[in-house]
Each structure stands twice: as C-alpha cells, then as structure tokens.
C-alpha cells in the first residue's frame, strides 16, 4: 500500500516539475493569500491586549498547530476534498475497477504541492510563537505539540471524508461543505472557550476541535497539570474511524452518473 502511494507521489512530483515557473508563482501567491489569515490576529491584538485570558502568542500557537494540520490535508488529501469530481464525471467507476483500496486511490489522485507554502508559513509562525511563550519545557510538552498536530490533521481529514461521503447522495458537492472544513478551520484557530456555550459544546462533542485547541493548550501553557491532557488529542480517533465507516457505507449507495 505504501509503495503504491509513493508511486503516486513520484508521479505528481514529476508533473509539477514540468511547469516550474508556474509552480513558483503559485507558491508565492499562496504565500500572500495565507498572510491574510494571520494578519487578522495580529491587527486585532494590536488593539486588544488579550482574548478571554489568552495572549497573542498563545493564539498564534493554536493558529499554527491547526493550520499545520489543515495544510497537510490540503497537500495530501486534496483528492478527498474534491471527491465530487469523481462522482460527477463518472470516474468513480474507474476506481472500482482497480485492485487497489479505493480510499488510497482517492488520496493518490491529487497531491497539491503548492499548499506546502502554507505549511511552511505555519511552521515559521509556530516557531515564533514558541520562542515568545514562556514554557516550562519537558518531554511531555514536546509530545503534546506532536499530538496536537496529529489531532488537527486527523480531525480535518475526518471532516473531508464526511464531505466526500455525502457526495454519494447529492452528486454535486454543494458549498455547504465549506462550513465544516474551511469554516471549521477559521474557528479552530481560537480555543473553543472563546465562543458561546452552544457553539463550544458542538465543537467539543460532535466535531472535537476542543481536543486539539483547548484541553491540550491548558496543559501546554501550564494552566492545568493533569498529565492525561497530553493525550487528549488522541480522542480524535473516535471521530475519524466512524467517518471512514460512514464513507464506506455511503459508497454502497453509489449510482453511476454514466457520463
């Protein structure tokens, strides 16, 4: 399985290398587009000192973690995000014919190296935030960052899979799907405690953003010392696995569009 995926990766890399200038221009333009999203945080904190007790570098830290996870999805799981193309164009039939796991084929169908630009910027912001935060470093603190990034990656992967699953019913991926993916990213950049109660509850128990941007943050910044919080992002697994099953069950509903 890994071998097949690596082959896909190589093919996509080769095709990108055919248009080097276009890639570089795209990379630069991604850089500017992403700039807008943390410019909001910087200019708001220029006016206000803190948001519900969180400082600018704490928010930049969650921003970076969430965006590292999100942009990893944009690079590697773009096929899942654009899944409606398979259904609309009838290409899903092709996937069914090949003796490789369907999900792997979807993942391999598109790898968007341009979004590495966002990933890179997010890592830079993470480093800036870490340098400016006053952290009592320990092994757990390093581990928690990795857990948070893995959690952020998984939670958005789950959302993208759900979006793909409902394309089996609607054929077209309506704009509604952006609510949980792009809208979700927008709000996951702030700890859920910033939002109103009903909202926060939904994004704790239904879409578990709280386990990547709130509970681990409490431990990381020293507000809580319960060691269990280090592993709180692992709860995301309880979210991703059902998403995958929903996708598989929905795929049985597939009727070819025949075009």
């Amino acid at each position: 399985m890994v071998k097949v995926y690596l082959k896909y990766l190589k093919l996509h890399l080769k095709s990108v290398m055919q248009y080097k200038l276009s890639f570089i221009l795209g990379f630069i333009s991604q850089f500017f587009v992403f700039f807008a999203s943390y410019f909001v945080i910087i200019s708001l904190f220029e006016k206000f000192g803190s948001i519900k007790g969180f400082t600018v570098y704490e928010i930049l830290f969650t921003f970076a973690v969430v965006n590292i996870g999100f942009s990893l999805n944009e690079v590697f799981a773009r096929g899942v995000d654009n899944f409606d193309h398979f259904i609309k164009a009838g290409k899903y039939d092709q996937l069914l014919l090949k003796p490789v796991n369907i999900f792997l084929q979807v993942l391999g169908s598109d790898i968007n190296f341009l979004k590495l630009s966002k990933l890179l910027q997010s890592i830079v912001i993470l480093i800036i935030a870490l340098v400016n935060l006053d952290i009592d470093w320990s092994v757990f603190k390093v581990l928690i960052i990795l857990n948070m990034i893995a959690g952020a990656f998984c939670v958005f992967l789950g959302v993208f899979i759900l979006n793909a699953a409902y394309c089996f019913y609607t054929v077209e991926g309506l704009e509604v799907r952006n609510v949980l993916s792009y809208g979700g990213r927008e709000m996951a950049q702030y700890p859920v405690s910033v939002f109103k109660k009903e909202f926060a509850t939904f994004f704790t128990y239904v879409i578990p953003f709280a386990f990547i941007n709130y509970y681990p943050l409490l431990y990381f910044t020293g507000r809580e010392s319960n060691i269990l919080l280090v592993f709180s992002p692992l709860i995301i697994i309880l979210f991703v696995i059902p998403c995958y099953y929903i996708f598989n069950i929905s795929s049985r509903k597939y009727l070819s569009t025949g075009s």
């Binding site: 948001i51 007790g53 709000m187 702030y190 910033v194």
Partner: peptide
C-alpha cells in the same frame, strides 16, 4: 463571536 470575545475582554 471572535470580535465579541475581544470586546467582552
């Protein structure tokens, strides 16, 4: 809600 949180602070 994000702005509101800033304003409330």
């Amino acid at each position: 809600m994000i702005y509101l949180a800033f304003y409330e602070t």
